[in-house]
Amino acid sequence: EEWMVEKALMVRTGLGARQIESYRQGAWIEGVHFKRVSPSGESTLRGTTWYNYPEINKFIR
């Protein structure tokens, strides 16, 4: 699984929702560690946020 939603990321990493938000707003790079995608497939600020687990795992190492 490369891309996953927040709940799956929480299960895989043990991070809480606030921790994920903090990383997203600070250290993680949009387009690398996470992306927002609307149902139409376009990038957007209001779409579902998807997280790239392999890239996040590399960051944590």
Rank of each mutant, 00 (worst) to 15 (best):
R12N: 06
E55W: 03
T44C: 08
G47P: 13
R24A: 06
V37Y: 09
S22E: 15
E2I: 13
K35E: 04
G14A: 04
Y51S: 00
Q19I: 06
F59V: 04
G26H: 14
L9W: 02
P54V: 14
T13M: 06
A17S: 12
R36I: 15
R18D: 15
K35V: 12
N52L: 03
K35Q: 06
E1H: 08
L9R: 01
G31T: 04
E21D: 07
W3F: 02
E6R: 09
I20S: 01
P39Q: 11
W50L: 15
S38D: 14
G26I: 08
Y53N: 02
T44W: 08
S43H: 09
A27R: 07
E42W: 05
V5C: 10
R18A: 15
S22A: 14
T44A: 12
V5Y: 06
V5Q: 14
Q25R: 13
P54T: 14
G26M: 10
R61P: 04
G16K: 13
V37W: 07
K35T: 08
M10Q: 08
G47W: 13
I20C: 02
Y53P: 01
E55S: 05
Y53G: 04
W50A: 04
W50E: 05
T48H: 07
G16E: 13
T49K: 03
E42M: 09
F59G: 03
N52P: 01
E42R: 03
E6S: 06
L45K: 08
E30Y: 09
F34W: 14
I29L: 07
Y53K: 02
T13V: 05
Y51P: 00
G31S: 04
W28H: 00
Y23S: 02
P39V: 13
M10E: 05
W50H: 06
Q25E: 14
L9T: 02
E2V: 13
M10S: 08
K7D: 14
F59I: 05
K35A: 06
K35M: 10
R12F: 08
G16W: 06
Q25P: 02
A8M: 14
E42L: 08
R46W: 13
E21V: 07
R18S: 13
I20K: 00
G16M: 09
E30N: 05
K7T: 14
Y23W: 07
S40C: 10
E2A: 07
T48E: 15
S40G: 12
M10V: 06
I56M: 01
H33Q: 03
I56L: 02
R18Y: 11
L45S: 13
M4G: 02
Y23V: 02
L15S: 01
W3R: 00
V32Y: 05
E42F: 07
A8D: 15
F59D: 03
G26R: 08
V37M: 11
Q25H: 10
E30L: 06
R24K: 13
W28K: 00
E1K: 08
K7A: 15
E21Q: 10
T48I: 13
Q25W: 07
P54E: 12
G14N: 05
Y51F: 06
N52W: 03
E42P: 09
G14Y: 03
G14T: 03
Q25V: 11
G47F: 13
V5E: 15
E21L: 09
E6P: 03
S22G: 09
G41V: 08
